[in-house]
Amino acid sequence: MSAPLLRVTGLRKEFGSRRILDIPEIKLEAGKAYVLTGDNGSGKTTLLRILAGLESAKIETYEFEDRALPLASLRDWIRYQVIYVEQHPYLFNTTIAHNIEYGLKVRRIAKPIRDTLVSEALDWAGVNHVSNVAPRHLSGGEKQRVALARTKILNPKLVLLDEPTANLDQAARAQTIALIQKMCQENNCVLIACHDHDIIRLPNMNILTLADGTLQTPSSSGVKLAVIS
């Protein structure tokens, strides 16, 4: 088996005296797609945010590409490799094209290359028609697709998607799932927190189940098992 892209051990999270997460080990492999299921309030969002370095937790080791990273400045180390997309993505108050371009500007990519990549990403997500529109004029499905395009354009090694199809109508859901499927096929490692059976049943999807604050043995959905100790 190849070395994991991400390996986190001894992950614990508490809010006051209440323990939310207690996960001895979680491993994610490069190029694989994972779905994280669990009841509402089971800590899926918290886990994703912790893995993205956006929320603090007690962690013994955080290894990315076989390298143990300093926990105090975790986000600084993984900021170009790991992207977390919120359930209701926030789009900056500018045009959609500028939203998609944001991460490239942060990475100081030259303007001509940025323009080409943004154009490709707009096509990829099917949001070309709204490229110069302000976010407030977009539907929920379009916002989600823009958020996915904004993520995909950066080609991160790990994408963490939080309930990407929640509150979307049938057509928007189908479009979003199609994009997620494309993203999974493009060799990104994707971890998706959701209850959506259409995502869970995607080909080669590995299932992680969060219950009682820890990752459980995968359910009997017939899909390939996740790498969980």
Partner: peptide, 15 residues
């Protein structure tokens, strides 16, 4: 401000 603005910027790689 929407608290997600800061997290989104950080999440997209901003310092």
């Amino acid at each position: 401000a929407d608290p997600r603005a800061h997290d989104t910027a950080i999440g997209l790689g901003a310092s």
